[in-house]
Design a protein around this nucleic acid. Sequence first.
DNA 1: ACTTAACCGAGACGGTACGTCCCGTCTTCCG
DNA 2: CGGAAGACGGGACGTACCGTCTCGGTTAAGT
Lengths: 205, 205, 205, 205
Amino acid sequence: MSPAPSPARRTGRPRSPEADRAILEATRAALVELGWGKLTMGDVAARAGVAKTTLYRRWASKNELVVDAVAALFDEQLELPDLGSLQADIEGVVLRFAALLERPETKTALMAVVAESTRDDALRVRIRGAIVDRQKRLVLLGRERAQERGELPYEEDPSAAARTADLIFDVIAGAVVHRTLVSAERVDCEWARGFAALLIGGLRA
Amino acid sequence: MSPAPSPARRTGRPRSPEADRAILEATRAALVELGWGKLTMGDVAARAGVAKTTLYRRWASKNELVVDAVAALFDEQLELPDLGSLQADIEGVVLRFAALLERPETKTALMAVVAESTRDDALRVRIRGAIVDRQKRLVLLGRERAQERGELPYEEDPSAAARTADLIFDVIAGAVVHRTLVSAERVDCEWARGFAALLIGGLRA
Amino acid sequence: MSPAPSPARRTGRPRSPEADRAILEATRAALVELGWGKLTMGDVAARAGVAKTTLYRRWASKNELVVDAVAALFDEQLELPDLGSLQADIEGVVLRFAALLERPETKTALMAVVAESTRDDALRVRIRGAIVDRQKRLVLLGRERAQERGELPYEEDPSAAARTADLIFDVIAGAVVHRTLVSAERVDCEWARGFAALLIGGLRA
Amino acid sequence: MSPAPSPARRTGRPRSPEADRAILEATRAALVELGWGKLTMGDVAARAGVAKTTLYRRWASKNELVVDAVAALFDEQLELPDLGSLQADIEGVVLRFAALLERPETKTALMAVVAESTRDDALRVRIRGAIVDRQKRLVLLGRERAQERGELPYEEDPSAAARTADLIFDVIAGAVVHRTLVSAERVDCEWARGFAALLIGGLRA
DNA sequence: ACTTAACCGAGACGGTACGTCCCGTCTTCCG
DNA sequence: CGGAAGACGGGACGTACCGTCTCGGTTAAGT
């Protein structure tokens, strides 16, 4: 999170923390407006009212800057209010996730960092920690509730349970992302209902 | 399929199909060697033994060229041999798709163009036409076979059938992509078996 | 003048003389509008309603085409009406020449071919024959009239007479061209009067 | 004199005067070696050991660069040493100017930019500023000397004096240029003597 | 209050790739 | 076979950013 890898200093003028803030904000704005590919360091500097040199003193490359700027967007976690049934819970999380993905800044930012992570292992690890794993608990929570309601059986083998949770997570997140960004069609209530029905059918079998 | 967006022409020297072929091949080679970021139009032209102008006559941008170049890989790889049962067919296509996504050039190129398409509608349309819609036929084919085998019931309402096919497609493709690129874990036989079982369970319900 | 250096032909479709005319006219129009530097073969072809191939069948290069196109402009000769005195005759020819140089097509064309002739000896010879030498007779005619009027003495030595005529020609033409194109100021009656006075003073001395 | 049309600046890294020098020198060298037509900005930049962008920061086009590069030659070559008499001074400057025009790079470059300037006012202004007006001082200097020697009378009216100086300048420069480039004959001592005699005769009258 | 060292803005620098324009040549089809 | 159309290989163009490097000027900590 801290942008500056600079060594311990004692004397001289300290770096302006105002600049850090302005730069990250400008980066997010530029990302939404221009996309990853058209985003330029010079443009970010100009938006932030800062010299290009100041950017390069703090971040070594465009990638590092953008990842830092984007990380904050995913700090808010998805909630999972208890809607009374497994079907309703799944529909709810699907619709919430889809709403998040339809906001241009999250959509662009997510795809940008995922795309970049195919070439950058450190980035992939960072994404897993910051984004993916944090949402996986929703699956665990939803299963627990369904089991308490008697909608799903308890799984004895803990490793099998973990494997199933991973599978469900990939299926839910993957289907929503794919429909939204690749098929480029809206995730509406009807689609959510059909998807939830399919998934619950599979889980019961 | 045809790379050129040029309108129907009748007069003048026709475009060399040899050049088309050489360019797409060169693009794939460059993609593997250099990766998305270092790939340049000039380099592709040189590898193809073709002038840069010839390239720009056919593709308006690097993105569109790469989409077409990668699309061919999907066509080659994603066949659906009849493996005797719905379970086996699903496992097969999942494993083939995952193998494709684990090749660096496909993975990188696909995610890069998808990321770019979040900001470029023309590119999104091209991706749908060149890649997505073409693979949807596998879903239709698989369902048909399963119905002939008696593994799945026939759906009377054609629009409901189409909606279901779209859903299945997003679920399959999304889950594989998400596990591979976001969760960053391997799609092995075991995962494929679990996923296929889940899906078939849902379909039967 | 004949554009085509093609060998004797007997068979096949004869070349369209209409095309020759249209091409030369289009070349002149393009020269005025665009200047030598911006004139392109493709543009000339398009203006003439002709294929680029047709141009190249008749002229080997841009230079040859433009020189042929321009030559016609200088076919009209300057006249030298007898205005009653040497002073008036000189003023008259200066003003007529200046008027010719202020027309954009002649100005551009003349400078273009002169500039090109600094690199092309054949072109220089052609310009001398077609343009320069033809105007030199005006100097001879003016001197003759002045001698008959008694304004200038007769020169006995014919070679000295020729040398003087050449000198006068370079001085008159050079001064007008330089003022018009290099100093870029107008040749008006006042300038012509001053110039004629200077020249006559020199001739009498 | 200064190549850069950039406005007065105070901040930022100043432009390297070394680069200016190297570029102009490289331009002259390329002009001699390759001629006007084959001279390319990229080649000049490479010779000067400079990036192409550095070149474009200072000169907007090939024409303007060449004007400035050639202008320096005029400054070097066109001195006016006091040769003791008006006749000798005129002969001297005529012969020096002619020698300059017989060097291929000067001849070609000068005519090319003048030809181009018939269609480009900005270029014409630059030529006047960089070349023409700077040489006009020779006329003023020569007249002053002749007046001090008592060879020419003093002119009271300053505007008439300026008009005369302009006239003399056009006559001298025009005659030499015309004889050299249009008539395409050598300016030798004999011609210079005849021309100087003619001019002095006119001035005294 | 005075150094002094690191900061800051501005912008020039050497580079790389871009996408465009035009060249002069070459197919192809039509009349 | 001439001609219109237009694709071809090639070369230069002028632009946009990159990441680095001076500049002159500012600002705070340590004396």
